[in-house]
Design a protein around this nucleic acid. Structure first.
Length: 204
DNA sequence: TACATGATGCCCT
DNA sequence: GGGCATCATGTAG
């Protein structure tokens, strides 16, 4: 397994700001899943911001419901939902308690625990092409890290005790690209998708 | 209680 | 590039 070097957990304050800032700042950070079989680590290479108000594509747009209550809670918590009858999507809540907003994780570059991720995805890794199938796309990413609503929704991602956390190392992002969001019909022209320019693990 | 739909991914052409 | 599986959720009735 590749050595990770020194990493440190992101603080709750990191997420206590506008989703657009958080989506941009999260690029290059690490998503870390602790399992009985070791650490699964991926680098965040693609995110999308979903605003609380004035964003028709955001789940928060119609107010607080049984599904989306995490968006209205304190920053740094996992909002996991089930979509298309098949897939989970992972978001992290932003802004102070009471103010909705979040960032969707769309793609990771696998860093560590690749064998475990491949097992969870039910695929074999033979070449570079297969590596991209591991966690490029919100649904794939959740499957690779075993993220489900039952396990992870409303989990504090900034707590040292959590088995799902966000961290940073000395990685430096070179250039960031901003584009329209993927797979939505409402507010589809808003430039709220952020990705690391030239990274081959972005989803589209 | 019924129904339309979706922040996707896979397989087929 | 296009079709489709599959079901939780929100909204209407």
């Amino acid at each position: 397994m590749k050595s990770l070097g020194r990493i440190s957990r992101l603080s709750q304050e990191f997420f206590d700001t506008d989703p657009r800032n958080v989506a941009r700042a999260l690029l290059g950070k690490l998503l870390v899943r602790r399992t009985v079989n070791g650490m699964l680590v991926g680098r965040v290479v693609e995110t999308e911001a979903y605003l609380g108000t004035g964003d028709d594509a955001a789940h928060a747009v119609s107010g607080r419901t049984a599904r989306n209550f995490v968006l209205f809670g304190p920053p740094g918590f996992a909002y996991v939902y089930f979509v298309y009858g098949n897939h989970y999507c992972l978001n992290v809540s932003c802004l102070p308690d009471g103010v909705p907003g979040c960032v969707l994780f769309r793609a990771l570059e696998p860093v560590s625990g690749i064998d475990e991720m491949a097992k969870a995805r039910g695929i074999a890794i033979n070449g570079e092409n297969d590596l991209k199938k591991l966690s490029s796309g919100p649904g794939r990413m959740c499957e690779a890290l075993g993220i489900t609503r039952d396990r992870d929704n409303n989990k504090n991602l900034t707590n040292a005790k959590s088995d799902l956390q966000l961290a940073e190392d000395d990685y430096c992002v070179d250039r960031i690209l901003v584009t329209p969001r993927i797979g939505i019909t409402k507010s589809a022209n808003e430039q709220l998708r952020y990705l690391i320019a030239g990274n081959r693990f972005v989803s589209a």
